[in-house]
Write a protein that binds this DNA or RNA. Structure first.
Lengths: 194, 194
DNA sequence: TATATACTTGAGTGATCGCTCAATAAACCC
DNA sequence: GGGTTTATTGAGCGATCACTCAAGTATATA
């Protein structure tokens, strides 16, 4: 009953998910065909389906990765420079957005595209958006505890408004005729007035 | 040389554009197939192409109609209750958004979906967004002239921020786990502080 | 009524969609 | 090296995509 070990795959699965994420992020769900993915990931159909199962499954992995990285980056930033400064810096980073494949939020794009069809990915995107908002709420809470902003505000409400502003900013930042940095400064200035 | 007059079409072209607009608005460009349109408009392929030429041409008509109605409604509201009150009321109307097919902005959805592919419709959407922003700027300007808000602000910058906030609100309002009305109130309250 | 004109119909176009699978190649244990 | 297991390959599946067009039908003028 000797069992033989097989060969190992040639690709780095995690790196492929990142590349797929960037492609989906830019082009959306319907806008990204398997041909696009095969070209970008250098995978033939057979390998693709052996590795990921389906286009939707890979999209779900990409979404998860996107959301996890977002929370991680925001948390790290807050640990680094404090919660209030992190909340104020994030809009600026988004407006500059040098290294991002596109500035609009992938979660929002996914939700907007697929919600009308009751696609499961829309629910996942919505859940991830809620995670992000919870992260923002936690930062507002910590900012209150640190005495950086007034106690009178409901951190959950602040977080909802803040996330909404960020989503608008990220949409606006895609346009060349919009001064996204000015909007980012205004969002940051609003936090000073809390 | 006798010229005979033909039969007239059975459909109301303008009404069809409205129905198409709602479908595109909800489902997006790639998400709406010709089968969907044929079913919704009750048009066979031949009639469809005789009437509109192509899916893209109809989408362009729908976009134009959407943008024109938006400017018209906003202007009428301002003539009715004044520029500042109109700017403050609009977020509330959007958050309630009873009679809309979906709350997210069709221009923003179109731009987000098609910009990555350099689709002509993305440019059109961007141009319409600029029209809307110019409309907002005009209202802020009139609001300053009326002494309703301070003179120190640049109306174009206020308009850019306001539009960004509205786009975020309209995205957020799609989600069931978001209190869009609270965000709308906060946006309106910001205008009181100008 | 005869004729010209345009609208309606729906089968069908080639291209592309997401996806499958049998054949081949490669890497591991004995 | 032999045998086993898995990765890789690419032709090709049925379904759907946006779209075309020839045939049939209805309505106006003459």
């Amino acid at each position: 009953m000797a069992k033989a070990m097989p060969r190992k795959p040639e690709y780095d699965r995690d790196a492929l998910i990142l590349r797929a994420r960037d492609l989906f992020w830019r082009q959306g769900w319907a806008g990204t065909s398997l041909k696009d993915l095969e070209r970008e990931l250098k995978l033939k159909p057979g390998s693709f389906y052996a590795a990921f199962g389906s286009k939707d499954a890979l999209y779900a992995l990409a979404l998860e990765r996107y959301a996890a990285d977002g929370v991680t980056r925001m948390t790290a930033l807050a640990d680094d420079i404090g919660p209030k400064a992190a909340l104020q810096t994030q809009p600026r980073l988004v407006a500059e957005g040098a290294e991002m494949p596109t500035k609009a939020c992938m979660l929002a794009k996914t939700y907007a595209e697929l919600q009308a069809k009751d696609h499961e990915l829309a629910d996942r995107a919505c859940a991830h958006l809620a995670e992000m908002r919870a992260c923002f709420a936690e930062l507002f809470r910590r900012s209150q505890e640190a005495g950086e902003i007034g106690q009178a505000h409901d951190p959950d409400r602040l977080a909802a408004r803040y996330q909404s502003d960020l989503l608008g900013l990220r949409l606006s930042a895609e346009r060349i005729d919009v001064d996204a940095l000015a909007i980012a400064e205004d969002i940051a200035a609003d936090i000073d007035r809390l």
